[in-house]
Design a protein around this nucleic acid. Structure first.
Length: 720
RNA sequence: GACCGAUUAGCUCAGCUGGUAGAGCGCUACAUUGACAUUGUAGAGGUCACAAGUUCAAGUCUUGUAUCGGUCACCA
């Protein structure tokens, strides 16, 4: 009989729970079991559950936000795995184009080097080495967080098959006429010397002088005198009565910065009579609105500022000057010529800046590849309307819809080396761009002119926007059939536009199906006072340090409890400490239970009291917790389990059992043993998705009679 | 400028479809070496931002006000 099976309580329990002692071994146990790979999971499993991991940037170590991502996703996957699904969590790493190049440029700078002037190939190889070494370092950290992802399916955004999918999408976009190469105003960062998408620009409120100049018979206002060299069009609203004497197209001779010029009057509704004098001159090469006006009236364009942010020869004596130093000099000259009317100080406006270096963006006209987004966005909205996917919070859905409704064409060209090269040829004479996957185009298909390869790379989000396809082996991999559309996309709400929206649009475009059924967006992790973590503030909480002090399970609980989906959370290490104590509590609960199991008989019948106890306490706990899990309220579920285990199991049930375990009545004692064992195994299961290490460590020490699987990770979720 | 969110215990935050306020940390007192490098018990502390409204009943719904955040747009 089993009496012999239940030996003394394992010695391991004589010491408090020490995470460091067990975590590595437990992860190894899981990894070697093969159960991270859904193909190896025990039992018949019909339904797939898939999460594609947001691939962390392979250019640094993990931060607290990563801790949250991997915890939430691991909870989801472990839960579904225990519920008998084919649970796949597909890990990856992101080369993170511009982000990584910026990190690497800082490194170069420290070494007294610069990417400008370097051989592009050499630079690429260096960044590749850097990225690959970071990648393996980072993967280790993912393991330490307990992530139960299938490493055998791991993907890197520069894998050949990923690139192939990206190239085919590029080609198909061309065939479907959703792609064009054209001269458009782009956001140009003079420091990084690349264009950026609208999303990569931050605006800062600033107070600057605002200048009024005499421009022939008009007074014009500007905050940017340095762009005014090429201004030979003067624009006003057609209905502005003050200027009704001037006609559209009328030529006016006037004195300007570097001598007399001929200006042309343009009547356009973009001229706002309310602002300044109601008259403006335009600089189509360096302003979006001006560019639009110029296009409407078929006006000339001229570049005034070069790619490094210096004035071109058109500026005459000012050529070669930096725009900031040029500004004063130009105002001075105009003043000397008697053309400065007045200066208004403290003009409030917002200035676009590079999101990486905070340097001012210089709008420029440049030939770039653009994707027409409207048709793609419409399909995404239709799919949302049809319920093919949903956002966990209504708030996120509204944010998504708003953006979809006013989406701009997407500039996918970047002038950086670190990324996927754009497979295209550009005509030297007419500027026509042609997608060329196999390097077969030798002459311009439009004008027969000579062509050269496009030196640019893709915006990194263009490739990661196809991540769910790439990871599941679109178009013909078997994983694609089984796991696409994936179940959940869980990522930070800060990349809803950058990434989530693009995956939806590109996924629908390539496959006709949404890439995921559900979007769960978490908020940002801040410090305990709600401050954004930053190195300069010195308030960065590195997950590895917290794990070191309190254990991974404690960190995971600290990140989950009281953290409502979608809202930002403040992480306080004191809170994490509370869950370290909780892990130890569970440890001692297990010790007590095992201490009292001598003579345990699985065949024992529960007394009526104990049967009733299960119904009123255990079953309701299971039901409620499962319910919260199903609603993605892991924060509430975690708290419910915590109180169930501590307040009920430990404080109430164990306390009242102490006397019953000494009962003269054998059936009462045996029933209690069974009851406690039942509570213990169930608690371990309920808690496992949240605190996988301590629960698995305990599970490994339990006698066989109590277990339905050798490994808790694949044990069956308790029945309600 | 447009939109969105937040305002609940000293601190950081939960509170789902409305029914006399909860967690962690901190604080006070007492008990305890017991499964528990502790834990247990008891307690202090909140007119749930403000105002009006709906309701038998409002942190919870509606409207408005204030303060703080966020997102998007925009350099005449």
């Amino acid at each position: 009989m089993s009496e012999n099976e239940i030996k003394n309580t394992p010695e391991i329990f004589l010491k408090p729970y020490d995470p460091k002692e067990h975590e590595k071994n437990i992860y190894k146990l899981w990894e070697e079991s093969g159960y991270f790979n859904p193909d190896n999971l025990p039992g018949e499993r019909e339904e797939a559950f898939t999460i594609v991991m947001p691939p962390p940037n392979a250019n640094g170590s993990l931060h607290a936000g990563h801790g949250l991502v991997f915890t939430i996703e691991d909870i989801m996957v472990r839960f579904e795995r225990m519920r008998g699904k084919k649970a796949l969590w597909l890990p990856g790493a992101d080369h993170a184009g511009f982000e990584t190049q910026v990190v690497y440029e800082k490194k170069l700078q420290k070494e007294g080097r610069s990417r400008f002037g370097m051989d592009p190939k050499e630079l690429y190889d260096e960044i590749m080495d850097f990225t690959l070494s970071n990648k393996s370092f980072m993967e280790n950290q993912v393991r330490e967080l307990g992530a139960s992802c299938d490493w055998s399916r791991q993907k890197f955004t520069l894998d050949d098959d990923v690139i192939e999918i990206v190239y085919n999408t590029f080609k198909q976009l061309e065939e479907d006429e959703l792609l064009y190469r054209g001269a458009r105003i782009v956001n140009w960062c003079p420091k990084h010397q690349t264009s950026l998408s609208n999303l990569e620009v931050n605006y800062y409120e600033r107070k600057d002088p605002f200048y009024y100049f005499q421009y022939g018979p008009f007074v014009i206002g500007t905050a940017r005198p340095e762009t005014k060299f090429g201004d030979k069009y003067v624009v006003m609203h057609p209905d502005d009565k003050r200027y009704s004497e001037y006609e559209h197209g009328q030529k006016i001779e006037l004195e300007w910065i570097n001598g007399p010029i001929t200006a042309t009057v343009i009547k356009d509704e973009a001229g706002d009579p309310e602002i300044g004098s109601g008259v403006m001159t335009i600089t189509p090469w360096h302003s979006n609105i001006d560019f639009e006006i110029a296009k409407r009236h078929n006006l000339d364009y001229e570049q005034v500022i070069d790619w490094r942010g210096k004035l071109l020869p058109i500026a005459g004596e000012f050529a070669g000057m930096n725009i900031t130093e040029a500004r004063e000099a130009i105002v001075k000259k105009l003043d000397e010529k008697g053309l400065l009317v007045k200066i208004e100080e403290n003009y409030e406006h917002s200035v676009p800046c590079c999101y990486k270096c905070d340097k001012e963006i210089e709008p420029q006209i440049r030939e770039q590849w653009f994707v027409k987004m409207k048709p793609l966005a419409e399909k995404a909205v239709t799919a949302l309307d049809a319920g093919e996917f949903k956002f966990i919070t209504d708030r996120d859905e509204r944010v998504f819809r708003d953006w979809m409704n006013k989406i701009d064409d997407w500039n996918i060209s970047r002038q950086i080396v670190w990324g996927i090269p754009i497979p295209a040829k550009v005509c030297g004479s007419c500027g026509h761009g042609m997608v060329d996957l196999k390097d077969t185009i030798k002459k311009c298909t439009k004008c027969n002119g000579a062509v050269s390869p496009d030196p640019d790379t893709f915006d990194t989000w263009f490739s990661s926007g196809q991540w769910p396809l790439a990871t599941t082996g679109f178009p013909d991999g078997k994983d694609f059939d089984t796991y696409y559309p994936t179940s959940v996309m869980e990522t930070g709400k800060d990349i809803i536009f950058f990434w989530v929206s693009r995956m939806i649009m590109l996924g629908l475009y390539r496959t006709g199906k949404v890439p995921f059924r559900k979007v769960y967006l978490h908020g940002m992790v801040r410090d305990k006072h709600g401050q954004k973590m930053s190195k300069s503030k010195g308030n960065v909480i590195a997950p590895s340090e917290v794990q070191e002090r309190f254990g991974t399970d404690a960190l995971r609980m600290g990140l989950m409890v009281n953290n409502a989906p979608g809202s930002d959370m403040n992480l306080d290490v004191d809170k994490v400490n509370a869950y370290k104590k909780f892990a130890n509590k569970l440890w001692n609960i297990s010790r007590f239970t095992l201490d009292n199991l001598a003579g345990y008989d699985p065949q024992t019948k529960l007394t009526d009291t104990d049967t009733q106890n299960i119904k009123t306490h255990l079953t309701t706990a299971i039901t409620e917790i499962t319910d919260h899990m199903n609603k993605d309220r892991f924060d509430i579920a975690a708290e419910r389990i915590y109180h169930f285990v501590w307040d009920y199991f430990a404080s109430t049930l164990i306390e009242e059992s102490k006397s019953l375990l000494n009962s003269e009545d054998v059936s009462v004692k045996a029933s209690r043993q069974k009851l406690l064992a039942e509570y213990l195994t169930t608690s371990l299961k309920l808690l496992h998705p949240f605190m996988p290490f301590v629960t698995e460590t305990i599970w490994q020490e339990l006698p066989k009679e109590l277990k339905d699987q050798d490994i808790l990770m694949v044990a069956k979720w308790p029945d309600e």
